[in-house]
Nucleic acid binder design. Structure first.
Length: 530
DNA sequence: TTAGGGTTAG
């Protein structure tokens, strides 16, 4: 039986769910709904527009209408809605009820769900099933498997699959490159990228973001520049966002400005993601007025755009404006998230707004529905610690519902140093050691507390203890852009050709700052600073 | 039907 052509045409023109229901009634009355083709059309529209109707329709559809297409449509609609557990549950029940055999499309959707859930076990089970049913050689299934293994941080499995396949397309290469960056295999990722026979803008953006993801921002920017010299590769939004992120972290303002000018020159529409990347770049480079300008020009500003600017303002000593922007975002109906609260609490901390910070912390869960995490407790400890409320800060550390991390302990120990309370610092470090929460950083901070109190014997003891335990601290790193070139400096690294001049200049600046500080503190003029 | 993009304290 074939549904009337007129009804099928009407289904194609259907715009609303009520129109669909009318056509569906007609198909039911005329028994044309038993036609699997007509059923497929109904469920496709319903899955996109009214998922509860799609579920009902599937449940009541006759068995012979429950084709793989209908099942796949339902699974895909769950995946599209982000309901990945439901997608897998629907698949299992469909298989159990109607002897539905998955096809290449089914695996594609199931593997996307597993990727999103990070569920490598289920993904591997579907891999076995796909092998048994002979679907693995199909591009979409094989690439879906590689992506699934990469998303579940099972990059070795992804690599094996990649090595086994004879016809690797750009998607397989790009998925594996992402996986290598994700697990820190930077050289392997780069080797794959250099070897891949065809590169497109997605593979270029993957490598730019990959470098940025592991903190190799100069390399990310180099790749962005290399991409621009190629013909036939489109410099799309994702590549530009990656390059702007690298500029932001390197402080490469000239490069960032060049990219912004390029976007304007080529009339590239700045969407909210690109807008946020520009805001972040200008804010991190200290050009807050431009960050503001881009922010105001960005349409559909969301929590990311607001948070980027709040963070920038707070980091550049404009905490009051940051707090004003926090109020504005709520007034504009943008809901703050957990990152926003980190920035806002930090702004309160820097501005000494202890009461306001405490109030905001308390309203996080009750008013905004954001559960305070370890990072927020870190901000709270910093807020109290900076205000000299060391006992209160200590109480927070002792009573917080999760183990304190190095940020929380660092905030408390830093407060001990600033307020000259070595006993509390020592007590905390000993307590940390007893609980086996030993971080290299806390020993350095304890040593700094003693140093600030001129207790050099204690400093030596702490440093000796660190050596004995083999505790190491990651060296600090800084970078600056001069005349379009980025220079990076790591603690202890003396390879830079003009390092002696740099050190000499830093000594001069240091001396100058000390003069200014003394002059200000004691209202005394010690003569002209060098 | 499969690969790539934005906010994070000290």
């Amino acid at each position: 039986m074939r549904a009337g052509q007129r009804c099928l045409d009407l289904l194609d023109q259907c715009r609303t769910i009520s129109q669909l229901k009318q056509i569906q009634s007609h198909l039911t009355v005329t028994a044309a709904l038993y036609d699997p083709y007509a059923s497929s059309k109904v469920i496709t529209f319903a899955a996109l527009n009214d998922h509860s109707h799609a579920r009902l329709f599937f449940r009541h559809a006759s068995l012979h209408c429950r084709t793989p297409f209908m099942c796949n449509t339902m699974i895909k609609s769950y995946v599209d809605m982000g309901q990945h557990h439901d997608a897998l549950a629907f698949y299992r029940s469909a298989v159990a009820e109607s002897l539905f055999l998955p096809n290449n499309y089914t695996f594609s959707f199931l593997l996307t769900a597993c990727s999103q859930l990070g569920d490598g076990f289920s993904g591997a089970c579907y891999h076995c099933l796909a092998l048994r049913l002979g679907w693995v050689p199909y591009d979409f299934v094989r690439n879906g498997l590689i992506h699934m293994y990469v998303s579940c941080e099972l990059v070795e499995a992804a690599r094996r699959l990649f090595d086994e396949c004879l016809h690797r397309d750009v998607i397989a290469w790009t998925a594996l490159i992402n996986g290598c960056f994700k697990c820190g295999k930077v050289d392997e990722a780069r080797q794959l990228f250099d070897e891949m026979p065809v590169k497109n803008s997605v593979s270029w953006s993957a490598v730019i973001h990959g470098y940025a993801q592991v903190g190799l921002f100069a390399e990310a920017l180099e790749m962005f520049k290399a991409m621009q010299n190629l013909e036939g590769v489109r410099m799309d939004h994702a590549c530009v966002v990656g390059a702007l992120t690298a500029c932001a972290f390197l402080g490469a303002l000239d490069q960032g400005r060049w990219i912004h000018a390029y976007l304007n020159r080529n009339r590239v529409e700045v969407d909210r993601i690109l807008g946020t990347a520009l805001i972040e770049m200008y804010a991190k480079c200290g050009v807050l007025e431009m960050a503001y300008r881009v922010f105001e020009e960005t349409r559909d500003r969301d929590v990311y755009a607001f948070t980027a600017l709040i963070s920038g303002l707070s980091n550049h000593g404009r905490s009051e404006e940051a707090m004003g922007l926090f109020e504005r975002m709520q007034y504009e109906g943008v809901v703050p998230n957990e990152v926003t609260f980190i920035c806002v609490l930090s702004a309160c901390s820097r501005m000494g707004l202890t009461d306001q910070g405490l109030m905001i912390f308390q309203t996080m869960r009750e008013v905004h529905g954001v559960e305070p995490g370890v990072q927020h407790y870190g901000c709270l400890v910093d807020l109290l610690g900076r205000a000299g409320m060391l006992e209160e800060a200590k109480k927070v550390v002792e009573e917080m519902p999760m183990q304190p991390d190095s940020y929380v302990l660092g905030a408390l120990l830093n407060a001990c140093r600033v307020h000259g309370n070595a006993n509390l610092g020592k007590e905390m470090v000993e307590s940390i050691a007893r609980k086996k929460l030993d971080h290299g950083g806390v020993h350095v901070l304890l040593s700094n507390i003693y140093a600030s109190l001129n207790k050099w014997d204690e400093v030596v003891k702490v440093r000796k203890g660190m050596e004995d335990k083999g505790v190491q601290k990651v060296p600090g790193c800084s970078s600056i852009e001069v005349n379009g070139s980025v220079f990076e400096f790591v603690v202890g690294d003396r390879l830079f050709p003009f390092i002696d001049d740099v050190v000499e200049t830093l000594h001069c600046i240091n001396k100058h700052l000390k003069f200014v500080h003394l002059d200000k503190d004691e209202d005394n003029n010690y003569g002209e600073a060098p």
